[in-house]
Design a protein around this nucleic acid. Sequence first.
DNA 1: TCAACTGTGTGACTTAGTCACTGAGCTACA
DNA 2: TGTAGCTCAGTGACTAAGTCACACAGTTGA
Lengths: 202, 202
Amino acid sequence: MIDITEELAAFECIELPANASVFQQGQACENYMLVMGGSVKVFSRTATGRECVLYRITSGEICILTTACVLGGNHYPAEAVTESTVQAKLIPIANFNQLIDSSISFRKFVFNNFSQRLSDLMLKFEQINTESTYYRLQQFLLQQDDHIPLTHEQLAQEIGSAREVVSRHLKQLEKLNIITLRRGLILLIDRDKLSRQKVIVK
Amino acid sequence: MIDITEELAAFECIELPANASVFQQGQACENYMLVMGGSVKVFSRTATGRECVLYRITSGEICILTTACVLGGNHYPAEAVTESTVQAKLIPIANFNQLIDSSISFRKFVFNNFSQRLSDLMLKFEQINTESTYYRLQQFLLQQDDHIPLTHEQLAQEIGSAREVVSRHLKQLEKLNIITLRRGLILLIDRDKLSRQKVIVK
DNA sequence: TCAACTGTGTGACTTAGTCACTGAGCTACA
DNA sequence: TGTAGCTCAGTGACTAAGTCACACAGTTGA
């Protein structure tokens, strides 16, 4: 992790409540945001309102989507909301540009963030485009604890699918004694079997 | 356009033939590539071999996917091939990093490229995820000349769909006297009608 | 001129997403 | 403490998209 504490000391920290909109699709960009604590979810939305999580901005990360917007002269191509209380520093564009030129650390920091997001997006694109919904669901579940406090809706958003599709797959997995379903909660009871379960039998 | 002629004068220009692989999925990254002429197509591939064009690197652009790979320590998440004879300069990583630190122009140039790619990918993601295949096909056709020298396969790759699906939509459009189909060629004969044609009737 | 290749058309099938609706569980508050 | 109104989950019916297999037409080159 690159230390840019010194560079950012001058900027004041603000606090956002949970579930607050950070920016919306089509909105113009105004400030760089550096998240100091909490988590911001960046997602895109289909015509029918379905959400698909693209990535998260967590502590110590910068929202480089702003840079892309400012330099490209376009508006935000996605939405972002806070998932928890978020502490963040807002950096005006002029200050940001000045820091890029004056601080090697800050420059490297921003470059790293850019790279990471690009990689994240490529990976997400790959997954959504090349892997089946069931495979994405399976992999997502395997990455979690045995106790998964998510609704089917939230799960669908994480893997970029529809709630009904996820519900149906989960129901099949429950019938196979791989998981147990509770309201807003999934209990993973046979991780091994899940990792081996390639196809869902009707 | 930012002028970085001076910064790049020291690097020799190589030439690649058409249809040559530039990098493959999973490959490690070695050099930065700056395209001086011609076009490189970057695409991802599904498990069944279907390709989806992500973006193109054309004259004066740098393949920042390399930066993302180098900084992220990961391998190429996509493939790239030349679409024509391509002139390019290869810049070793050490020289690239040195240029970033020493030249404001070069830095801005790379930043702009990063931003543009991020925006491209977001846009592509949006389109593939939120728009119907027919809508993407319709929009793609409307962006072309009336004389479109592409096979259905190539068209499918551009919009990220399957050849058969594209073929079927095109056939419907031909029945409606909107286009004429020839081998390896589509003639757009009624642009207005195409732009109004919202739904394909069976 | 014909074999091999590339491009197109199409039927049958599977998977995913959408729509509409039902009912179960939770919670606030009258 | 009962219940209205909410969120969450389940499901049938349908459509869109992708996959698979195969037929055949146009093109190319030995």
